[in-house]
Design a protein around this nucleic acid. Structure first.
Lengths: 111, 111
DNA sequence: CCGTTTCGTAAGTCATGACTTACCGTAAGT
DNA sequence: ACTTACGGTAAGTCATGACTTACGAAACGG
């Protein structure tokens, strides 16, 4: 989805914990909940939010629902982050063209 | 600071709006609030949170407080995001352990 | 000086959403 | 068929935090 959604969804610590739990690989719900302090329904609810945000995908295996990470869901967020550094480069270039001063700066911004 | 903080802080839409407003360059508080629907104190409060998270920095100019973006505050979050792809690469590498592939994702900006 | 601009903080309100327990359907084992 | 494991959904509670207005302090202009 959008980077806004990803940020809002991953902003919650518990939900992030669920998300990171899946870095180890696909996992059924009860196994995710086992390592956490909150109840299993709470985990289910977080998984639904994560799924709606495209950060996680679900597959059925009998009575189990196996959830796994969906890294593409993070792509927009990553691009958004990168664009901030593009901003810095752009501003740097404009500034360099506008003024002929010698510029000694760090890569991150003004000082 | 940590990527957890960055995610929690940027999770709020209004706060993100304040943050993105600063992409255009340093800005005093009243000017930020001018383009928004919420009150000026609300903006101040968001700026405080952003500053505590290291995402923004403040400088005084007379009676004005000029806020500007602090891109380093995003670095940890970006690294965290990248690490997800590292996960994928690692798993892939293990999978293809017999063939000696060189996989590389290029990105500038690393200090 | 005195009024204005700028901004942070205090105090209080209110909605959102993260939990809980309870319940239901479904699949599998015996 | 009965029992158990698994997990989604409903309903209700409760705390967090995002707002508001009101106020005080600091710099500046007239």
């Amino acid at each position: 989805m959008t980077y806004e959604t990803a940020l809002a969804v991953l902003g919650d610590p518990t939900r992030r914990q669920v998300f990171e739990r899946l870095r180890g690989g696909p996992c059924p719900v009860h196994a995710i909940a086992a390592g956490m302090t909150v109840s299993r329904p709470a985990v289910s609810q977080h998984l639904k939010v994560l799924k709606d945000a495209g950060l996680v995908e679900e597959r059925s295996e009998g009575v189990r629902r196996i959830y796994s990470l969906r890294r593409e869901g993070l792509a927009e967020l990553r691009d958004w982050l990168d664009s901030f550094w593009d901003d810095a480069l752009l501003a740097f270039k404009i500034e360099a063209e506008r003024t002929h001063w010698q510029i000694k700066r760090t890569r991150d911004g003004n000082e």
